[in-house]
Nucleic acid binder design. Structure first.
Lengths: 208, 208
DNA sequence: CGAGTGACCAAAATAGCATATGGTCACTAT
DNA sequence: ATAGTGACCATATGCTATTTTGGTCACTCG
């Protein structure tokens, strides 16, 4: 799986050697602290103490506290995305892959919401403020969607007239109520039926 | 046009006689003040002074300051809705009515956003906090949508297999990115093309 | 030269307090 | 009874003084 597309740089805000043991220690500590106390209540000094170095040393590896937040956020979103990709890989038809892609994303997002509320808040912040981590995630989802639609067009499951980009971006928008953290929370009550109805609607529009 | 459906009570928070000259004076004063200074910066005492009565008298007509906010908000949303209804009435086909309904709603909402930012913020608040005024508005939009789809089904423009309620609620969700004030602001950059693409997608799914 | 840091600063968060505000009620005047 | 109000209270809001916090840099140590 190649990750070096022209996506928003997932390593934005990084400094120094990209794969350093200390960097990983910082990320681990941040993951634990952000999850337990929240992004806002965790200070950079806390992270420094957790790994046994001084605060200044943290800044040899990250541009800012937000950059650390982005790394954690990207990790969360990566977990969601990879669960979705596993699920789509198991599905046989493009239609099934399509259903899985978005239903797993929503499922995993709601799990995050209920189990790691503080990390979810971080992800929500990332989305509303359009951090690179969130933009990269959306780009990856759209890329997966594009491949599914291409497959469906090849197998004859989906129509071939509508421009691919147009279809993809429109579908991403229809799924926003179940992907964007703020809207997801807003639409929680109707799940999962509401999403199924929208997925059905989109699939009808994809029919040849 | 009958408005006495089982919608969320648009007159919630009202007290005393429903059509009293004073009530209208309060609403007018609130409209002016909320628009100029914002909901938060306007005090009930300000409104009282504006109409030349004491603060306590206001509470003979409204349960709370929020109830006044709801009234103003309902008024704003009503303007948007009636503009959309005028537009759909002019359109001939169900397809055209459908396009008009949602594009006018988005157009008028963005106009409100740019021209009366403070009232827009009030409406945004109403939506995120699910005030009756916002719920009533959504119910009215969905009702208009339902009638358009019914028309389209009669004229043969739209398919007839999918359950009507399911279609309507799904479409409302697909349009959320352009209706919900917070998302609208978020999606402003892609307008109006992005919405057109979604509308096209939905219309494809409605095709017989 | 590279790993690591204490001391330092501007900006932001916090705490504590005075004031303003939403809301009620007993009351007056008509 | 109806129209209307001043005085009152608990809470929210704004404000200022103080502390924390994000972030930098010159510096030490090996």
């Amino acid at each position: 799986m190649t990750t070096d597309h022209a996506l928003p740089d997932a390593a934005a805000g990084h400094r120094g050697p990209a794969d350093h043991a200390i960097r990983q220690q910082i990320i681990d500590a941040a993951d634990a602290h952000f999850g337990r106390f929240g992004y806002g209540k965790t200070t950079v000094a806390d992270l420094a103490k957790a790994i046994g170095f001084s605060k200044a040393y943290i800044y040899k590896f990250f541009d800012s506290k937000q950059a650390i937040g982005e790394a954690i956020c990207a990790q969360c979103l990566e977990k969601i995305m990879s669960a979705a990709l596993v699920s789509t890989a198991e599905a046989r038809t493009a239609t099934e892959k399509f259903r899985k892609l978005f239903s797993i994303i929503t499922l995993k997002s709601t799990e995050l919401l209920f189990q790691d509320r503080l990390l979810y808040d971080l992800a929500a912040n990332s989305a509303t403020e359009q951090w690179p981590s969130a933009l990269g995630y959306l780009a990856r989802v759209e890329e997966a969607l594009r491949e599914i639609i291409l497959l469906g067009r090849e197998t004859g499951e989906f129509e071939r007239k509508t421009p691919l980009d147009e279809t993809c971006s429109a579908i991403m928008l229809t799924m926003q109520p179940f992907m964007h953290p703020l809207l997801l929370e807003f639409n929680l009550d109707g799940l999962p039926e509401a999403q199924t109805r929208v997925i059905n609607l989109v699939l009808r529009s994809l029919a040849p």
